[in-house]
Amino acid sequence: MKLVAVTACPTGIAHTYMAAEQLERVAKKMGFSIKVETQGAMGIENELEQDEINEAAAVIFAVGITVQKPERFEGKKIFEFSVQEAIKNAEAILNKVKEEIGG
């Protein structure tokens, strides 16, 4: 199953990257493919291409602020969580996504 995700928090120096790392780590462990875009103090990094978004089974937002360039995700199924949840319960998040999209 292919997933894409965006992480973003108010200060953009810590949680954004921790959540990204955690999602990547746990997804790998669970056997998913995931690409995580970070929107932090350094700007947008590891930016998601439209193709990648189109191909993804679902979009995960782990955010504490508004996502930039939201138009890219129009029509996609979006699962939104707080950054903290992504850091603390990445596994539960991914299981929930899996259940809902039936993958």
């Binding site: 120096i13 810590a14 949680h15 954004t16 990257y17 921790m18 990204a20 790392e21 955690q22 780590r25 970070t38 932090g40 103090a41 350094m42 850091i87």
Partner: peptide
Amino acid sequence: IPSGEKVRPKLQLLPKLSRKLIH
């Protein structure tokens, strides 16, 4: 980190550390 638009090179290092802390 200091405020200001100028992103000093060192700023990139904090995300690195944050990612590391997950492990």
